[in-house]
Simulated assay, not measured.
Amino acid sequence: MSTRQILPGPLAEGPSHGYALKRRCGERFPRGRPLAFGQAHMPLQRLVRDGSAQVDGAASDRHPQRTVYRLTDEGTRESAEWTAEVAPSVPSTSNEVFPEVAVAILVGSDPAAYLHHLDAEPRWPNTTAARLTVLTTEIDAS
């Protein structure tokens, strides 16, 4: 799983600059590997290059000017395709199921369509379900 695959989820919540996306990733995927400052910028540029995101202006409130990005319909479609894939379970690697299902929810897909992921990872469906409930509640409240 790459930063490029994860960023469309938080970006689907609304146009943002890299630092705001770093913060959202930390909030949405607290147990994942945290993004370092500046780590989102190259993947964002690749998303723009590939048509999955586009520049949506700039923000310059009290900070140097920051490029603001937004997810495109193509980016939403690509994320839906990625989240529909079942990642094979591999010992001693980080688990992709939660971030994959979370991105599916963030880009507006039906979470029920991704329940097959829980079959792929029978070790932690209760934890995943609880975290997804919190995420869905937060998204519905915003």
Rank of each mutant, 00 (worst) to 15 (best):
M1A: 07
S2P: 02
T3P: 03
T3E: 09
Q5T: 13
L11A: 10
A12I: 09
G14E: 11
H17A: 03
G18H: 02
L21C: 08
L21I: 04
K22T: 09
K22Q: 15
K22Y: 08
E27H: 06
F29I: 08
P30C: 10
P30T: 04
P30R: 01
G32Q: 02
L35G: 00
A36I: 08
A40W: 02
P43Q: 04
P43G: 05
L44I: 08
Q45D: 04
R46K: 10
L47R: 00
V48H: 06
R49L: 12
D50A: 01
G57P: 07
A58E: 15
P64F: 04
Q65W: 07
Y69C: 07
L71H: 11
T72R: 10
D73S: 15
D73E: 13
E74A: 15
E74F: 14
G75D: 08
T76P: 12
T76H: 13
T76V: 15
R77M: 04
S79I: 00
A80F: 07
A80S: 14
E81R: 15
E81F: 14
E81S: 13
T83L: 03
T83C: 12
T83N: 05
V86Q: 08
V86D: 12
S89L: 08
S92D: 14
T93I: 14
V97G: 11
F98W: 03
P99N: 07
E100S: 10
V103D: 04
I105K: 06
V107G: 05
G108Y: 02
G108K: 10
S109W: 00
S109M: 10
D110Y: 02
D110F: 02
P111H: 00
A113R: 09
H116M: 02
H116L: 01
L118A: 00
W124F: 14
T127F: 11
T127P: 03
A130Y: 03
R131P: 01
R131Q: 06
R131G: 00
R131T: 01
T133V: 03
T133G: 05
T136W: 00
T137N: 07
E138A: 11
S142M: 15
